[in-house]
Amino acid sequence: MAENVVFHFDIDGEDFSSAGGASVTVKKKLRQLGIDSEQIRRVAIAMYEGEINMVIHASGGTADVIVSDHEITIVLADHGPGIPDVSLAMQEGYSTARDHIRSLGFGAGMGLPNMKKYTDSMKIETELGRGTTITMTVNIT
């Protein structure tokens, strides 16, 4: 690939039932680009978890996916409340989700750990009251 391929999405924070739609689209696009299916799965799961987090914890945001010849970069940015203690949030099982979120099938406290597990790098920039930007990469082999 000579030039990077870029996808941009606005993630609607009001609409839980359509959350995850951007990840489904990215999965299809990466398949069209001929990316290895294992790498597609890792990108899709990490992005999906991040997309859901933006909807349930931060009232939406934006998602950008950049495909270069050696890696796929996912940037998820929101203007939500921020994460007070990132190392705590990264622990498996830690969640601030209320009962109504749990009844929707989320709030196990596994999303951020999953995002870390499935990507080759993950960086969280967050500021209380301003928002959170998560940048993840998956190497293309």
Binding site: F16, G20, V24, K27, I52, G105
Partner: peptide, 13 residues
């Protein structure tokens, strides 16, 4: 669990 995220989760996997 019954909502659209069940299908999306299955599809991601």
């Amino acid at each position: 669990l019954v909502n659209a995220q069940v299908i999306r989760t299955a599809s991601m996997m």
